[in-house]
């Protein structure tokens, strides 16, 4: 399987956003998502302004607007969970449907609430997409370490990331082997019954787990051979430049202002 590299949504680049220190990008993304979460329902002008922010950041990052928008729609199916709100929030009736003998009343406030949830979710996903597309995981972990993520957890996630591609290849080989052994006649279902197919997939999962346990032994021995003593060390990182601090502060200030504006509009 050659897909390992196409697996990560990270797109190497040299844009302004790529060049920005992860210790600025990650906190700003988190603050953005938190701000969106704090926004009241139905403050459309504020949503529009935030959309302008994410879209311009996407343009600055030069990752391709179409790709950015496509990925940002990833969470859309989940909006289904909020769909009942259209009919359960009381308010002025906009329309009435009858479905299977049930009368559903579409209410104005329900529509506002549903659309706000969908837009807020979309904005948050956009911010996360942008961060993932312009920040490699090791960099992101550095930034999270600066935000007090426990060192051990960072080390585990870092090692997981390093071996993920190896094990995805391994899983790919297992899938290919199953494919190669599963002959089928035209039109007839492949393999045995459902339980049999599930058992085969389970056997593959078990063997993957076993192989990776054995691999972890080898990894551990290799680490010991290189002087590992249980402590994960890394080079100290250069302090944030004044410019980076400035961008961080300006970004946080802007978000605070936007939050303030939204509350003002509601009040």
């Amino acid at each position: 399987m050659s897909g390992a590299n196409s697996l990560t949504p990270f797109l190497a680049g040299s844009s302004l956003i790529h060049a920005l220190d992860a210790r600025v990008k990650v906190p700003l993304t988190l603050a953005f998502i938190l701000t969106v979460s704090f926004l009241p329902f139905g403050v459309w002008p504020v949503y529009v302004l935030l959309l302008a922010l994410t879209v311009s950041a996407a343009l600055l990052s030069e990752i391709g607007l179409a790709r950015f928008l496509r990925r940002s729609l990833l969470a859309l199916p989940f909006a289904l969970a909020a769909l009942p709100l259209l009919f359960t929030i009381p308010g002025e009736a906009l329309a009435r449907f009858s479905l299977f003998g049930l009368t559903l009343t579409l209410s104005g406030p329900g529509l506002v609430r549903f659309a706000s949830i969908a837009v807020k979710s979309w904005l948050s996903v956009q911010a996360a997409v942008l961060m993932a597309a312009t920040t490699d995981l090791p960099e992101m972990l550095l930034a999270l370490r600066a935000l007090k993520l426990p060192r051990l957890l960072a080390a585990v996630i870092g090692l997981m990331w390093r071996y993920l591609f190896v094990l995805v290849d391994e899983a790919g080989r297992l899938l290919r082997a199953r494919e190669a052994r599963s002959g089928s006649r035209e039109g007839a279902p492949r393999g045995g019954g459902l339980a049999w197919r599930a058992r085969v997939a389970g056997g593959m999962a078990g063997s993957l787990l076993l192989r990776s346990l054995e691999r972890s032994d080898r990894v551990y021995t290799a680490m010991l051979a290189r002087g590992y003593d249980g402590e994960v060390r890394s080079l100290p990182h250069p302090p944030l430049s004044a410019r980076a601090w400035g961008i961080l502060a300006a970004g946080l200030l802007l978000l605070a202002l936007i939050l303030f504006l939204s509350r003002w509009m509601v009040a």
């Binding site: 090692l159 390093r162 190896v166 995805v168 297992l174 899938l175 346990l213 990894v219």
Partner: peptide, 25 residues
Amino acid sequence: GERQVPVMGVLAAAIFAGQMLNFAV
């Protein structure tokens, strides 16, 4: 103890990759 980083890391990768293993329902 000190084995935890390699064991946890590689097994997390295995569980992650294991989510690829599917079967047709």
